[in-house]
Amino acid sequence: MSRFKAHTVLPGFNLALGFTVLYLSLIVLIPLSSLFFKTAELGFGGFWDVVTSDRVVASLRVTFVTSFIAAGINAFFGIIVAWVLIRYTFPGKRIIDALVDLPFALPTAVAGITLATIYAPNGLIGQYFAAHDIKIAYTPIGIVVALTFIGLPFVVRTVQPVLVDVEAEVEEAAASLGAGRWDVFRRIIFPAIFPAVLAGFAMALARAIGEYGSVIFIAGNMPYISEIAPLLIVAKLEQYDYAGATAIAIAMLVISFALLLFINGLQWWSSRKGGR
């Protein structure tokens, strides 16, 4: 214990660590471990049968693929939004800045119903796509739209503070040394914000994977096509099949954990490489 203590000049290590462990146990560890206990009723064979059945595998694929696409879209546009909000001043900037957080505040079911209304073939935006035979609501594209909406703030909010720290003088220096605009972005800005983008991407991805409320209203919920894994969990609960439901949940948790671990590793690697 004393060896750990030596690292810090701040008092209260024991108390703070105690709090951390208690807090995480109450909020995260105990609920999650009860998931594993419930699933244990099935035995490993039963668990494997549940998570490898065609329907479950198809829904996991839908969930992870759409979440990945949505997080990717958010990463790309999140950088642009953060850039605009940090580097330019224009009237109404504060309002736009506040708008970014709204998807967090809205109940997800409301978001889902609203998005479905707008993107349905007779909706405000959906009608123009419908004219070209493109369906958004009630297809996997609809799922991506909903997941992009709920994940919007993450990348913006992680990139913003980092972008503030990248001094405009450095960019100007690069430019005066003959670097083109693309070079400045690629060699100066992007390496600095990349870890933050990854962090935001990871959060948006994690949020999207677990999303239920907004998606079911816009997904169409067709088996094998637009049925998300959380819906199958609900369907199993409906039959009082608690163990089967937690089995799918655990499969999602394990995959998510592996993905997040990988992204964190990437983040660590890139921030080390950037020398920050």
Binding site: I216, P223, L231
Partner: peptide, 9 residues
């Protein structure tokens, strides 16, 4: 074409 989760949906 669409399987909602409830009757009202």
């Amino acid at each position: 074409p669409v399987l909602d989760s409830g009757a009202r949906g």
